[in-house]
Write a protein that binds this DNA or RNA. Sequence first.
RNA 1: GGCCCCGUCGUCUAGUGGUUAGGACACGGCCCUUUCAAGGCCGCGGCACGGGUUCGAGUCCCGUCGGGGUCACCA
Length: 516
Amino acid sequence: MIVRTRFAPSPTGYLHIGGVRTALFCWLFARKHGGKFILRIDDTDQQRNVEEAIAPILHGLRWLGIDWDEGPEIGGDHAPYYQSQRCDKYQAAVNKLLSCNYAYRDYARTEEIQAERDAAVKEKRTFTYSRNWMAETDEDIKRFESEGRQCVIRLKMPREGKLIIDDLIRGKITFNWADEQDHVIQRADGSFIYHLANVVDDEDYKISHVIRAEEHLSNTPRQIFIIQSLGYNLPAYAHLPFVAEPGSKTKLSKRKLEKYLKNKDFAKLVEHGKSIANRIGLKTTDDNFNPVIVDFYEQVGYLPEAIVNYIALVGWALDDKSEFFLMNDLIEKFSLEGVTKGAASFDPQKLFAFEEKHFLKLTIDKKIKLCTQFLEKAKIFPSAYDGILDKVIEAAGDRIKVAGDILNFSDFFVSDGALEFDEAIYNKRIINQPNSKILLKEFYDLLTQQDQFDKTSLENLMQEFIESKLIKANDIIHALRIAITGKGVGLGMFETLEILGKERVLERIKKFFEQH
RNA sequence: GGCCCCGUCGUCUAGUGGUUAGGACACGGCCCUUUCAAGGCCGCGGCACGGGUUCGAGUCCCGUCGGGGUCACCA
């Protein structure tokens, strides 16, 4: 069998983290089995600009390295890949269903159906439509229409027997046909409902494995009914557990940002992102800046491979020890057997840990490239300070976990009189340490005479200084750090001095004394 | 409420009848230390509950409880 999987987002304007997880699993399964991965746009009820709304979705998938063999922008043998352009096929399917008596015209008014539904709820039983307004003959149609009624097309579902779905992840699942409803497949305005379109497309595209989130499990029976009625091939099903909220089992949702912000770890992720966003002049609204949306990560400089690695592990595991995976490892190792059944909650801390690991593995050239992009977005141009960016990155080591973190070290790339000083730390280390300025001045004098400006020589110089003054390194280093970086935290002191170089260090200390 | 799914440390998970229940993230402590990171070492912490089956159950069966999904002329 040729494996063909598909991911079918609706044009919402953003790529949900749970959505990519589904896309990734579909993609991995196809790649692993040498099959095809198809992207289809579920825009049966198009009320907005579809192209505009799918752009972020396509972009996000590409950013993560999830490419499609057929679909929007690239076409394919089964084009078009937009449901809105396939109505003739859906109409043909509906006609066939109607002619075989697997579907019927229904003239019930919304209130009439609702009344029956309410009654069922009240009696605590499964709702079953009376079919009182089902039109089976031309006379029925004439009669209902003379009453000013409009019709929808409903499935004529079986009312007895069982359906057993063999799910690749969950095993056998039994449904009673009697619990199913006569679902609408074509609306009064002639447009088609997802379930019908979905089944027709899957058949047309020759989808072999329907891999989708668990929320679709309960509407699988009606889809199978359509498949069987139309004589289509039954695809294999695999219902994935969904990605849940941090610390909960409820489905993760874009709209609950405010709630998630109460989670300390989630809030931290957002805060960290915002600090980067602010420095690159990115406006952060809840709509565009939300860790539930994949775009968030690209904006602040996360690595796509880290995101992929993390989400692959939300609901899938290879064994009891492997956790670090690159895309190619995943293709090789992925299997539906490794997919777990229970909902897996989104863990911001673990995601961040993967980012850290992946960033650390990057070559210096790659880091330079990524960090440069963020400096430039912040209107900082490292090229003005020739050759120090690589030294800063090297010295920063694990301190840079996300490309945007380079902005924590932007003080290396501003002119020597333009440092911003952290007031709190200034008060703590300078104002409250009266001796610090005197010591700093003395050390400054020593530096002016220091020719060897490498970190080892400087460390020796410092050592001699503190021994001669009978002080501790603490007594001078903090003041020195503030004078030359404006901050209380940063790289190793002597590395900082070496990278800045004698001229800039002296200039900065001089300016510091002038300004303070 | 009906139907369906799920239930191992806080979180992600390994586990397919015999394990001192393993790992990762997080957390706590110690070491290192000029700040912040990182690193090293140690530690905390779990089979939802109750019945069976079995010599033996996290693992199989039943029930209970808990969580979730779904019940649209949304996808």
